[in-house]
């Protein structure tokens, strides 16, 4: 089956800014890989539960106990931009 890929939408969801040319290249490559990957659809899987974990284990918890946090200066030393104890980023412009 021919696979339709809205590659610009996918790149936008993944927050990767690509040129038209790059988008076209990736679309072609994804098409080949997905053609192969689509073989999973050939196996009969009716009534088969999906695995989301290779081990059949449940309930790994931690107790509600406070542990030391990281040193802020050490954390912010890795930030591309920080000020007054905050990480700083460009505005979000959600509205508009």
């Amino acid at each position: 089956m021919p696979i339709e890929i809205d590659i610009a939408h996918v790149a936008r969801l993944a927050r990767i800014e690509l040129s038209e040319r790059q988008l076209a290249d990736y679309r072609a490559q994804l098409g080949v890989i997905l053609d192969h990957a689509a073989r999973v659809q050939e196996l009969p899987t009716e009534g088969v539960a999906p695995t989301s974990h290779p081990l059949d284990m449940v309930n790994a918890f931690r107790e509600d106990i406070v542990r030391p946090s990281l040193d802020r200066d050490e954390v912010l030393s890795q930030a591309p931009d920080a000020t007054d104890g905050f990480f700083r980023v460009p505005p979000s412009l959600d509205n508009e």
Binding site: L43, T45, P50, T51
Partner: peptide
């Protein structure tokens, strides 16, 4: 069709 089915195939392999 893709992720869900792949996880079912994984069950078959197990």
């Amino acid at each position: 069709a893709f992720y869900g089915q792949a996880q079912r195939v994984r069950t078959l392999i197990i």
